[in-house]
Amino acid sequence: MNDHGSAADQQNSQSTPGSRLEATGLLAGLGAAIPIVAAPMAGGPSTPALVLAAAEAGGIGFLAGGYKKPDQLSDQISAVRAGISRFGVNLFGVNLFAPNPVAIDKDAFAEYAEALREFAATFDIDLREVEALEDDDDWADKVDLLTADPVPVVSFTFGLPPAGVVRRLRKAGSLVIQTVTNPDEAEQAVALGVDGLVVQSYKAGGHSGTLTPAVPVAQIPLDELLDRAQARVRVPLWAAGGVSTPGAVREALNHGAEAVAVGSVLLRSPESGASETYKSALADENRSETVLTTAFSGRPARALRNSFTDRFHSIAPAGYPAIHHLTSPLRKVAAAAGAAEAINIWAGTGYPDATDQPAGQILRHLAGAE
């Protein structure tokens, strides 16, 4: 399926139950020992400590560049570099949101703000006369940062970077990975010259990486999605979306993935930067349903059902980043107040397997190492 040796064949030979899975292809070339990736989770969960735990376990972790200012991202990169040398590898990545704005109608924005106003007022958030905020998440400055001070891997989600950006990053020495959610997106990404793809299923927690957020995310099982992608492109594939057990990891590898990226299963770990409100909600056995919603950000994202989704999911307009900026102050105050019914509890379908064990232990378990 790729030009890095017959990675799928190697992985299949390693998929004997009870044996540790060994990294191959791109990850092995970077110095990884296991084919497990700690996925980037923007908004706080992905910390330098989580990235370092992934490296210590023999995998690779990603810093989430989304929602951070360039200087904040630079500081986190420096923190990872300061700690990672003790593992004898330079093994980490950075994820950016590639611009793919979803325009919002001003009247629809105003109507949603009004619908939220009473709910937000209970947290002393005033949504009267608020205006839609549109930005590109400091895209150009972050790309400049990563070309001037290269990291081993750069990945993109939400949109496709220009081919020129891919060339700049590769020339600087970074591998470039693109998140895709269907075979058509895979072909578009490969045409840009990326080194590999994260193939993300609809079961993923948090935002879908879909390039067409106005179109319903196709509910294709991950193994079938991998099969379809392999039939269309010949680059390394990393599987993502709902993977939370060693068996699910092996299944993805058996369907041609070179590695598996996990996120929700790490959210309750000590190294996760998720709020205590968020972590407690994930552990709440009274919660049992996830929903793919635009209610929090204006882009489709999977979260645990709560009072916010019950009340606003059906009326939420599409519109990113305007809706994200509208609800962000409310969500931050609610998280600090312990009000789980008012926050975005991002969670993939495998979230019940999340534990409060150390991240490295979780990742090694997924690889069959313990």
Rank of each mutant, 00 (worst) to 15 (best):
L91N: 07
L175W: 04
R168K: 15
L91R: 02
V190G: 08
T122Q: 14
I177W: 02
P150I: 15
G164E: 15
A121H: 07
D105P: 04
S201T: 04
L127T: 11
A140G: 08
A121Q: 10
I125A: 05
D137V: 12
D135M: 09
S155D: 06
V153P: 01
A186H: 01
F156I: 10
P183V: 05
N90G: 07
K142N: 03
D141H: 14
Q188I: 06
F156H: 09
V154A: 02
L160Q: 01
K203H: 13
G205K: 09
S174R: 12
A132H: 00
G93Y: 09
A115Q: 05
Y202G: 00
R168N: 14
D184W: 01
V94E: 02
N100G: 12
I177G: 01
A191P: 02
G88W: 06
A132S: 00
E185W: 10
G173R: 13
F123P: 03
Q200T: 13
G193S: 06
H207W: 03
F97L: 15
D195K: 01
A189R: 00
G93F: 10
S201L: 01
Y202W: 14
K171V: 13
S174G: 00
A148G: 14
F97M: 14
V199M: 12
V143M: 07
D126G: 03
T179G: 05
H207G: 08
E129G: 03
I177F: 01
E118Q: 13
E131V: 08
D141N: 14
K171Y: 06
I104D: 02
F97S: 09
F156T: 11
K203N: 11
I177D: 00
L133Y: 02
I125V: 14
N182Y: 09
L197T: 02
D195T: 09
R128S: 15
T147Y: 06
Q188W: 12
A204D: 09
T157R: 02
F92D: 01
F158V: 05
F97Q: 11
V198C: 03
L169N: 04
A186N: 02
F87C: 11
A186S: 03
A204R: 13
D137K: 13
P183F: 04
A172I: 05
I84P: 06
E187L: 08
V176I: 08
V102T: 13
D137C: 14
N90P: 08
Q200I: 14
L116E: 07
A191M: 02
Y202C: 03
A121P: 02
R128F: 11
G193D: 03
D144Q: 14
D149T: 13
A186I: 04
F156R: 04
L146H: 00
F109D: 10
V151T: 11
R117C: 04
A191Y: 04
